[in-house]
Nucleic acid binder design. Structure first.
Length: 430
RNA sequence: GUGAUUGUAGCUCAGUUGGUUAGAGCGCCAGGUUGUGGCCCUGGAGGUCGGGGGUUCGAGUCCCCUCAUUCACCCCA
């Protein structure tokens, strides 16, 4: 084993797996343009304060999971982005996007960093694709974003998904609810577990998230956030649900769903996959109308977004056998050179084929013909083209179909004509 | 951060109560005559048994430390 290994919580992706990533990324790009979302790319690191203000200083992400560093002594603290929304919002505010047009629909596929203990579906460097719709957060906008996300899953063929959705009300609703929750749990304080006790102080809403079965009954009896949401908020939430129903998107309203990031308000949602282990949240999102103001944007900017964990998506797809048909084919032609003196001529032939748009491979290690043929077979080349003394003299090359074993002898130009036929690949499926 | 788990060739794994030059399958490489693969046959390369320390006449096998993996808690995508 080598002296160096990949850093804890990071991993290498080799060609076979890279093909799976590419497949998923292509679907995301295609559907994004179908839905009118444009790609944004923002820097991998930002000033630390951006995340402290945006995500919330008391959240776990900011509190203990960020990779933070000082670029130089006395400089401003920087942090590797642990999520995308804050950075995208910062970019939008900096560019004053909304003065160019009232609505912006952005999407991304990006790497994020969180200093957590690695686990299945949880790494320290991971990727998300997601969308941010800026300028409106109406029920229609929420539905737009959700529909895009769900169609990606559908197009990829993913099953066993559950969409949970809830409304968190506005800041005021939640403030009142927080107090109600506190006074509900206060008498039980002795029965709460350590982390829940801490949450009682900092963020009582998160007690509702607890997986601790001992607390289940206590949580079930707690007041519901939904009952604190003002009539207008309820009406909007119902409108969102109607949009989903109209599109045939199944959902479960879950009044216990609260999200861990401070900026969410009103509609919040999460998608779970039954194909995953403990880390079963494959995507999530919601409205974050207050984020712009929090970041010093002056006024509120209505916004909705979601993020989907790429690694988790890939794991779920793999478990469901959705990559089985993903068979990358080899080159169309493998140029087999008889002897090393002909290597230059072989390269010349390969070059011509490639210039003609024909994917071509050739041995670069001066190996025996047998080895070259094995190689051609191993990488599933469609044809072998022989370059030998007789070819050099006659200008007629032997072309062998490696599937049917048929072999013909033709001039190079004729071979190029044949191989350029788009249907040539189909004939190899035998 | 807490708990448990695993760590032997490129990959998947065997290695009995500690005992001679550490094994298999797959993969890789080379041959099986003279310019041709896939099957088959033969041969070969490749491991300081995660790292460090200790116990012992002797450790891949026991003990300690360390690093990493995996799973769960936690958190989230």
């Amino acid at each position: 084993m080598s002296q160096y290994q990949a850093v804890k919580g990071t991993r290498d992706i080799f060609p076979e797996e890279a093909a799976q990533w590419k497949h998923v990324e292509e679907v995301v790009h295609t559907l994004a343009s179908l839905y009118g979302f444009s790609e944004v790319r923002t820097p991998v690191f930002e000033y630390t304060e951006l995340f402290q203000r945006g995500i919330g200083a008391t959240t776990d992400i900011v509190g203990k999971e960020m990779f933070t560093f000082l670029p130089d002594p006395g400089g401003r603290s920087l942090t590797l982005r642990p999520e995308m929304t804050a950075g995208v919002m910062r970019a939008a505010l900096q560019r004053n996007l909304l003065s160019q047009a009232p609505v912006h629909k952005l999407y991304y596929i990006s790497e994020l960093f969180r200093k957590e203990r690695p686990q299945a579906g949880r790494q320290r460097q991971f990727s998300q694709f997601g969308a941010e719709l800026l300028g409106v957060s109406s029920p229609a906008a929420v539905a737009e974003v959700l529909t895009f996300m769900m169609q990606v899953f559908e197009t990829l063929g993913l099953s066993g998904l559950r969409l949970r959705i809830n409304t968190l009300g506005d800041l005021e609703d939640r403030a009142r609810y927080r107090e109600a929750l506190r006074s509900y749990f206060q008498p039980y304080e002795g029965e709460l577990d350590e982390s829940s006790k801490e949450r009682l102080e900092k963020n009582p809403l998160r007690i509702l998230d607890s997986k601790n079965p001992a607390l289940r009954d206590m949580i079930a009896g707690a007041p519901r956030l939904f009952d604190f949401v003002k009539a207008e908020g309820v009406r909007e939430f119902e409108a969102v649900l109607r949009f989903l129903a109209d599109r045939g998107i199944d959902y479960d309203v879950d009044h216990l769903l609260v999200r861990g990031l401070d900026y969410y308000c009103h509609t919040a949602f999460e998608v779970q996959s039954t194909a995953l282990g403990a880390q079963d949240a494959i995507g999530g999102g919601g409205r974050y109308d207050g984020l712009a103001k929090e970041l010093g944007g002056g006024k509120e900017m209505p916004a909705v977004g979601f993020a989907v964990g790429m690694e988790r998506l890939l794991i779920a797809m793999e478990k469901q056998g959705l990559f089985a048909t993903l068979n990358p084919h080899g080159p169309l032609v493998y140029v087999v050179v008889q002897q090393s003196e002909l290597a230059d001529h072989g390269m010349q032939v390969a070059f011509k084929l490639r210039r003609s748009g024909i994917s071509t491979e050739i041995d670069l290690a001066a190996r025996s013909m047998k080895a070259q043929m094995r190689e051609a077979n191993r990488i599933r080349s469609g044809y072998a083209l022989f370059v030998g003394q007789s070819e050099l003299e006659s200008g007629q090359y032997a072309l062998k179909n490696l599937v049917t074993s048929e072999q013909t002898t033709l001039e190079l130009q004729a071979i190029i004509e044949i191989l350029r036929e788009p249907s040539i690949r189909e004939g190899l499926k035998a």
